[in-house]
Simulated scan of single mutants.
Amino acid sequence: MAEKRKSKDKDASAKKSKAPKSSKKLNDGTSKDLSVQPASTHSSIPYPAAINSSSFIESTTKLTVTLAAIHSRDFWAGVYETLNGMLLHFVPQVRGVVLSYSKVKLLGDSALLFNDSPYAQLEISAKLLLWRPVSGMSLEGTINVQSPDHIGMLLWDTFNASIPASFIPKDKYEWRPFSDEEIAARAVPVSNNNNASDDEQDEAEAEAEASTMQIDAYGVPSGFGENKFGSGEWVHKGTSQSIGADGGLEFVVVDVIRANEVLSVTGALR
């Protein structure tokens, strides 16, 4: 009985060792290996679907203006005060940042008072120019800071944008730290003359900065858009060419972040 049990165990181990390989026979008699390949260790960047439209739009919108008692004799002053307060702020009612307004019209003959509120409500319409970025849009910004963690940019010298390091393809770009000589060359010397006035020191610093700045064929300063005091920069892999060397960097919008009345953009490099 012991010998029979031993032989059964031997047969079972032989069957396990002869497990069929994952293969598929093709029409020509050859076989194709269908074994699962190990997953890539690099997670892919979640690029959104591309949107080919501008982030600036014009919209004629109906608005409700709240007027204080001081504007009871001149309601237009209250209307323009409200519209001016919307400029460069995110307004949820229009789902965008208001940049300008025009063609303001009244939609009623009088303002309305509700219950015991001292404020009157007036219906108006206005044509608004809005900044409304959407995930998937392609935008271009000017680099103002670079670090191993992210790239910071300004859009039209007004709005903030950031590209996290996780959204920078490592097969195309890499972080290159500056040497001590490069950091010293980028720094602007400060005058140590304590007897000089503030205006004289400012003028000396401006002259020193201008002397180290080169102008390209298009009249753009070479330092424009570069991280002047950073510890390094992001460069193209293989060529070591600085990204945004011409002053601008194109990216795709991944997310739009709202903080109170301010919008900022999170992007990714392609």
Rank of each mutant, 00 (worst) to 15 (best):
A111M: 06
T82V: 09
I215A: 11
Y80H: 01
A39N: 10
A268H: 03
V94F: 05
H150E: 11
A259W: 04
I143Y: 09
A187D: 06
P189Q: 12
F167E: 05
R270I: 08
D157S: 12
A184H: 05
D180H: 05
M1A: 10
W76P: 03
V97G: 00
N227R: 07
S162R: 04
V104D: 07
S147Y: 03
T212Q: 15
S53W: 13
I257N: 03
T61S: 00
D198K: 11
K4A: 15
N260M: 05
P189K: 05
V97Y: 06
E261G: 03
Y218C: 13
S240W: 11
N192V: 15
T158I: 09
N27F: 13
S17D: 05
G230H: 07
S138D: 06
F90K: 02
A245G: 00
G244T: 06
P92K: 10
A77V: 02
Q146W: 01
S72L: 15
K32Y: 15
L63R: 10
A69S: 15
S59C: 02
E250G: 09
K15R: 04
W234N: 10
S55R: 05
D171S: 14
D11G: 01
N52A: 14
K15F: 01
A185P: 02
S231F: 09
N27I: 14
S31F: 15
D149K: 04
H89S: 15
H71P: 07
D28R: 02
V145G: 01
A12Q: 12
K237N: 13
F224Q: 12
A12N: 10
A120G: 08
E250Y: 05
N160C: 11
G141T: 09
N227H: 12
V134D: 06
T142E: 00
L87M: 10
V104I: 00
G247C: 08
N27M: 13
Q146I: 05
Q214P: 04
K15V: 03
A39P: 01
N227K: 11
L155F: 13
L249Q: 02
V65F: 03
L129E: 00
F90Q: 04
Q146K: 03
V97F: 06
K25Y: 12
S117P: 13
G244E: 00
D198Q: 08
E81P: 01
T158W: 06
K127T: 14
A165T: 00
R186L: 08
T64N: 07
T60F: 02
T61I: 00
T158S: 11
Y218G: 13
Y47F: 15
V36F: 01
G141A: 08
L154E: 09
V188G: 04
P133H: 05
T30N: 15
G96L: 09
A268T: 15
F251H: 00
Q241G: 07
R176D: 09
E200L: 12
K172C: 03
L26H: 14
M1Y: 12
Q241V: 12
S31L: 12
R73C: 11
G141P: 03
N84H: 04
I257V: 07
S242E: 04
E81I: 06
L107Q: 03
I168N: 00
R176T: 00
N260Q: 11
S110A: 00
Q146C: 05
S22Y: 14
L26P: 06
Q93R: 11
P221Q: 13
I70F: 08
A12M: 13
N144A: 01
S23C: 15
V262W: 01
T239Q: 14
E207T: 09
